[in-house]
Computed example of a mutant assay.
Amino acid sequence: MKEKNETGLGLPAPFYIWDRSETPMEGDVLLPFAYEEWLCRLIGRGELPAGVHLWRHRGAAVLGLRDRRLPEAEAAMAQFAAEGWSVAVRNSGGALVPLDEGVVNVTLMLPNPAGVMEHRADFRRMVALLTETLRDAWGLRAEAGEIAGAYCPGEYDVSVDGRKFCGIAQRRQLRASAVQAFVVAGGSGSALAARARRFYDTAAGARAGESGLDYPVVEPGFTASLAELTGDAALDAAAFKRALIRSLERHGAVRAAEPPVPPQGELERLVAAMRERYDKRA
């Protein structure tokens, strides 16, 4: 499938919206990551156009590789699992991200036929999409830059007035890439941050505070939901999704009638492979 002209955000056309966010997912949180892995493979082979995948999860702790290596990580993971949260190590960069119904996961999946490493350009494309959405829908001025004290801190944190509402990670394949944004739309950002801090308090164990231990120091006041940032309690995941889709459609995106369906057993196979590869201490 050949690419046509690009949209204003530099998105290849055609560009599709695959929305699976209407009902929050439950169960294994690796399933949506496996779904995106499958989509990216098809996009990389030219069998699918580029697209954005939208999804939510009712309660999950998605770890980065460095979180899994903390001395008491297994105890912290077990604590979350005992409370009914799905716990997994994702195949993209970054650190722990807690998910609940108020978090909208937005993943841009783009072909990269030349195999060129342009990860900063992909991050900037996601930041541009989010800042445009917030400006047009709520008049908010969002900007990118690391927010110390937020969970999963990074160069491409997206924040308003110094409070982070979104983190961005990336997954690259040979001929495609996925840029993942975890947008705290509704609910309490500080409550999610408190969960992240509790994970690290347990996972660091007796070595908490040691300079050689690699984990973020999370302070709840540095993360906020869009509802909190606007002061609009009615702003929720659905409201953010509608605003985001309006932005995407202005740039030529088309809502797909139905998301692509993988072959039976394919997602379970990919989940098993991801868990075998990434869910290890060393």
Results as ranks from 00 to 15, higher is better:
residue 98 P to R: 02
residue 53 H to I: 07
residue 258 E to A: 13
residue 72 E to P: 00
residue 130 L to S: 00
residue 64 G to Q: 08
residue 15 F to W: 05
residue 269 R to V: 00
residue 123 F to H: 14
residue 116 V to I: 13
residue 214 D to Y: 11
residue 86 S to L: 08
residue 62 V to A: 06
residue 192 L to V: 03
residue 34 A to M: 02
residue 172 R to T: 06
residue 165 F to D: 03
residue 130 L to Q: 06
residue 13 A to C: 12
residue 188 S to A: 02
residue 180 Q to S: 10
residue 124 R to C: 10
residue 212 G to W: 14
residue 230 T to N: 02
residue 107 T to D: 01
residue 107 T to K: 01
residue 110 L to H: 02
residue 262 P to Q: 08
residue 152 C to N: 05
residue 274 M to N: 12
residue 121 A to V: 12
residue 226 L to Q: 00
residue 24 P to K: 02
residue 106 V to D: 00
residue 279 D to M: 09
residue 252 G to Y: 06
residue 120 R to G: 07
residue 51 G to P: 09
residue 161 D to G: 10
residue 164 K to F: 10
residue 163 R to Q: 15
residue 167 G to R: 06
residue 190 S to I: 02
residue 148 A to C: 07
residue 18 W to P: 00
residue 252 G to L: 05
residue 282 A to F: 13
residue 147 I to L: 10
residue 233 A to F: 04
residue 227 A to T: 03
residue 68 R to V: 09
residue 234 A to Y: 00
residue 212 G to A: 15
residue 277 R to Q: 14
residue 53 H to G: 00
residue 264 Q to S: 15
residue 211 S to T: 14
residue 67 D to L: 09
residue 93 G to C: 07
residue 197 R to L: 11
residue 113 P to I: 07
residue 186 G to M: 04
residue 129 L to K: 01
residue 134 L to R: 00
residue 273 A to G: 07
residue 64 G to R: 10
residue 19 D to R: 03
residue 131 T to L: 01
residue 70 L to Y: 09
residue 2 K to W: 11
